[in-house]
């Protein structure tokens, strides 16, 4: 925790709907974020976290309103950390938001913002939204999304299921694959997970963009060896739970499909990604 002398403080008003700042702002960097959210810090660190400000507003008879603004270094990282727990597709604030009983989360440019007032009252809900609008307005620019999102086929995509990450821990967010990093996902790779189709019949698409074709090949080889040795003989494999899995490389891009209800579902999804990549020309950009 450090003295507050940051641009982050300039994004925040001194007073909002009668809620006033009653405590000193707190500022955290990569070394001190543990002091604030302990094990939770790992999630933010894995998305390139730079610094954060924490401010508490108070009003008699109302819950405290706690706002946190995380500078994630890039809009792609801010989208990534927001996508990590996204349950709905909303754009009421910033470039994407979700609200659930006293907690508003949104992202804009390189910032990820949380406003919490719990337990929720009608007055606190209004204040949370007003504060969010203020912050949204104070962040002047929008930031670009990860370019590899353009490689996701649109048909049957469950948009709120998209997860963008650079740490292997999140590979299992939708579907447990392995307890170790068999796909070599790290800070030098970009990865996307997304669901396709109706519940109970959903396929899960994984895209991983590696730094080089060689890195991609090594990850592919390891994955096939550890998870899908049969793939060397056929284009898709029905695994022990009756669902289909497939995986292909295209340059530095690994395309994997898990949990497909049929062989065609797995193969078609991969072909659609390959077609999108071909249209974009060359290697997928990061």
């Amino acid at each position: 925790m450090g003295e507050v002398n940051t641009d982050l403080a300039r994004l925040l008003p001194d007073e909002i709907e009668g809620w006033r700042v009653t405590a000193k702002d707190r500022l955290y960097n990569r070394a001190t974020l543990y002091q604030y959210i302990d094990g939770g810090a790992e999630l933010y660190l894995s998305y390139g976290f730079k610094e954060a400000i924490n401010r508490t507003y108070s009003k008699p008879g109302q819950p405290a309103m706690v706002v946190d603004i995380f500078d994630m270094g890039s809009s792609q990282n801010a989208f990534g950390v927001f996508s990590h727990a996204r349950e709905v597709v909303e754009e009421s604030f910033g470039q994407g938001s979700q609200y659930t009983e006293g907690l508003l989360l949104f992202w804009k440019d390189r910032y990820y913002i949380s406003v919490l007032a719990h337990p929720e009252t009608a007055e606190s809900k209004k204040a949370v939204f007003t504060l969010a609008r203020n912050i949204d307005k104070a962040i002047k620019e929008k930031g670009p999304l990860p370019e590899m999102l353009s490689l996701l086929p649109k048909k049957s995509l469950v948009e709120e299921s998209i997860r963008y990450f650079r740490h292997h821990a999140w590979l299992n967010s939708h579907y447990f694959v392995a307890d170790q990093n068999i796909l070599h996902i790290n800070q030098d790779t970009d990865a996307l997970l997304a669901k396709y189709g109706k519940k109970d019949e959903q396929s899960i698409l994984l895209l991983v963009n590696y730094k080089s074709d060689g890195d991609a090949q090594r990850a592919y080889d390891d994955f096939i060896k550890q998870y899908l040795p049969e793939l060397s003989k056929k284009p898709a494999v029905k695994i022990e739970d009756g669902r289909w899995t497939s995986c292909q490389l295209q340059g530095n891009l690994l395309i994997g499909v898990f949990n497909a209800p049929g062989e065609d579902n797995a193969r078609n999804l991969i072909e659609e990604v390959k077609e999108l990549k071909k249209r974009e020309g060359g290697k997928a950009t990061r």
Binding site: I37, G40, E101, G102, L103, L116
Partner: peptide, 11 residues
């Protein structure tokens, strides 16, 4: 859990 505080009463 969602958000930095990993808490919402809804959950």
């Amino acid at each position: 859990g969602i958000g930095p505080h990993h808490f919402s009463p809804k959950h």
